[in-house]
């Protein structure tokens, strides 16, 4: 017994040694800055001057800042369109790619490929798709008699346009749904089939409820991602005009945060903004968790 425990302890130690580089990296490059930003959010600091303690000053100022509310609104508008869209399209693709027929893996790969393209490339590509004169989208809309808007240079359409683009990177959502589908025992469907349930009934009463834990997970992670959207907006706003173009219509929360930090050097204020976002995400996740027992079914229960 004694010998084993020494061995176990030694193995423990070795284990820690192996992950030590990661732990050091995490502390220096992740945990450290995170803690520092808490500290910063209570200060006024413009990089070159001395830090000035202002207590809750930054947080108070935030509530009188119209751009704070505006950027929050823009971000939520994006999330409300983007998250359900990505979940629905991801699920539909997964359902299409689930049956084991010849070439399934090829299609799975094809649908996943856009997700590995860097977001900068995707965004640049979509600037072209959305171009009102030469873009593919308006070309097709014209074919069916719709006069498409100037997507990225219109205050009404720029956020929906960026949200629609999210469908392009639906790959990871699709893959996780596929994994969820694989987990559902075949016998459930077989039994239902024997009982005379058609495809839609099986989908509605077996597949969707059994996928609800997957949906739950994807809903939370996609929502978190959506609220932190940065690169797409940074590149696509106003068709590449820059920050929040046109007229702040695409000023996402994280863009505003970045602007405060790096254009205006309000590091304290930017830190406060980022912690408020963290808080908002935390509260939303908590709400989703609390309501989850109403719509998420686990097989064991």
């Amino acid at each position: 017994m004694r010998k084993r425990s020494i061995l176990a302890r030694k193995e423990n130690l070795e284990g820690y040694l192996f992950i030590l580089p990661w732990i050091i990296g995490f502390c220096v490059f992740t945990a450290g800055p995170i803690l520092f930003s808490v500290f910063l959010s209570f200060h006024e600091w413009h990089i070159f001057d001395d830090m000035k303690w202002i207590g809750l000053g930054n947080y108070k100022m935030l509530f009188t800042d119209p751009l704070f509310y505006h950027s929050l609104k823009v971000t939520f508008e994006y999330a409300i369109i983007n998250v359900p869209l990505v979940l629905i399209v991801g699920l539909l693709l997964a359902l299409l790619l689930y049956p084991k027929v010849k070439g399934t893996s090829v299609f799975r790969t094809i649908f996943y490929i856009p997700s590995i393209v860097p977001v900068v490339a995707t965004a640049t590509l979509w600037i072209w798709i959305y171009n009102p004169e030469y873009g593919l989208l308006n070309f097709f809309l014209e074919k069916i008699g719709i006069d498409g808007p100037d997507w990225l240079y219109s205050t009404e359409w720029v956020v929906p346009a960026i949200a629609f683009m999210g469908v392009w990177t639906v790959g990871p959502t699709m893959i996780i749904y596929l994994a969820g589908l694989e987990d559902i025992p075949q016998v459930y469907w077989d039994a239902a089939k024997v009982d005379g349930a058609n495809y839609w009934q099986r989908l509605r009463y077996i597949t969707l409820p059994l996928l609800s834990p997957t949906t739950f997970f994807l809903f939370i992670t996609n929502l978190m991602g959506a609220l932190q959207t940065f690169a797409q907006a940074y590149i696509m706003g106003g068709g590449g005009e820059g920050f929040g173009a046109p007229a702040n219509a695409s000023l996402f929360y994280c863009l505003y945060l970045y602007e405060q930090g790096w254009s205006w050097f309000n590091m304290g204020y930017a830190s406060a903004l980022s912690w408020i976002l963290t808080l908002i995400i935390f509260v939303l996740t908590l709400i989703i968790f609390k309501t989850s027992n109403k719509w998420v079914y686990y097989e064991r229960s």
Binding site: I127, N131, P132, E133, D150, L152, Y153, G239
Partner: peptide
């Protein structure tokens, strides 16, 4: 020309 024509 409009901004999107210019960029395109």
């Amino acid at each position: 020309p409009s901004p999107s024509i210019i960029s395109a």
